[in-house]
């Protein structure tokens, strides 16, 4: 009973628009704040370090004298990146690929998740089981390569889109959401009003599922944006490489130049660290600008996955 009273008092504090943590500051809260600050710093400091390197002179960076504050500030590296439009082109291309991928991915995911979430679909357990198999088993690199070769997908933009638009994980999350959030009774009444399956999906289910649509779209977009292994194996043309893979190549070529065998290293030049840092910033800044606006959907998605997935 006493406990209940305490809870009511807390609710009252919150309902008055006051932050309980500030009204009643506890040692636990302090520890938590320190922990979260440290955790945040592990993300923020490397970013500041790269940013500082990207606008420092080459000799200071080579000497590892740049930590968080830039030294001998110069924007030459950014100038090089902008003058040589390769990265700018790749960035635009990556945005296009990511957009198409996300749209098609969402289409496939909705078309898969909605029927599987409905009790009236016969054999849905078996279908769900079959659709989950790729989550646990993969064919491997060479069989995939041969398959894409047979479909003439190699060295083609669509190899970055079609193979991955079906995601068992995303489908599972969306199916769980539909099952828990869209009551069968709502559909039944729509049926009584003469609505077809597609009408129900488009006019009732999807408008009621905006949070999950935003979340899964974000999963698709971020997943595509960040992955580059398929670029490495299935794409050979420079014009079809996504920006993340170009960044990987840049870093790998610098590492390779440092450890190259005697055979071919006599005059291999590596990408200067400053240029690498500037490229990282150039690619990262747009995402960082967008991220604060999308963050809440990520949190929602995590919650859905954690509780019902």
């Amino acid at each position: 009973m006493a406990k209940k009273k305490e809870e009511i008092a807390r609710d009252a504090e919150v309902s008055r628009g006051e932050n309980r943590a500030i009204v009643k500051f506890r040692p636990g809260d302090l520890l938590m704040m320190i922990f979260i600050t440290l955790l945040s710093l592990t993300c923020v400091l490397p970013f500041i370090h790269i940013a500082a390197k990207s606008i420092s002179s080459n000799s200071k960076v080579v000497a590892k004298l740049v930590y968080l504050i830039p030294k001998e500030i110069t924007f030459d590296a950014y100038g090089s990146i902008i003058r040589d439009n390769t990265l700018t082109y790749s960035m635009g291309y990556s945005v296009v690929v990511t957009f198409i991928f996300t749209v098609l991915g969402m289409f496939v995911c909705i078309c898969g998740a909605y029927p599987l979430s409905r009790v009236r679909l016969k054999g849905r357990k078996w279908l769900t089981f079959l659709l989950m198999v790729p989550m646990y088993f993969g064919a491997g690199l060479i069989p995939s390569y041969l398959l894409y070769s047979d479909y003439n997908l190699l060295n083609n933009m669509w190899v970055l889109i079609l193979p991955l638009i079906y995601s068992a994980y995303n489908l599972l999350i969306m199916k769980s959401f539909f099952m828990s959030s869209i009551p069968e009774s709502l559909e039944e009444s729509a049926f009584l009003d003469g609505a077809s399956n597609f009408q129900i999906l488009l006019k009732i289910v999807l408008p009621l599922s905006k949070p999950i649509l935003a979340t899964i779209s974000l999963f698709y977009a971020v997943g595509r944006w960040n992955s580059y292994a398929d670029n490495m194996y299935f794409i050979r043309s420079e014009k079809l490489k996504m920006v993340q893979y170009k960044l990987y190549q840049m870093v790998a070529s610098a590492q390779e130049a440092q450890t190259a065998s005697m055979a071919d290293a006599a005059a291999v030049t590596s990408t200067p660290e400053v240029l690498q840092a500037a490229s990282v910033m150039f690619i990262t800044i747009p995402i960082i600008c967008i991220y604060p606006f999308l963050q809440k959907y990520f949190v929602k998605g995590t919650m859905i996955g954690a509780v019902k997935g």
């Binding site: 090089s80 040589d84 390769t86 990265l87 790749s90 050979r236 043309s237 420079e238 014009k239 490489k241 170009k246 960044l247 990987y248 190549q249 840049m250 790998a252 070529s253 390779e256 071919d264 291999v268 990408t271 240029l275 490229s279």
Partner: peptide, 16 residues
């Protein structure tokens, strides 16, 4: 022809 990833660093496309 070796592709050393120089395309992002001002080096031309190795195949064209």
């Amino acid at each position: 022809v070796y592709d050393r990833g120089g395309n992002s660093n001002g080096v031309a496309d190795v195949v064209n």
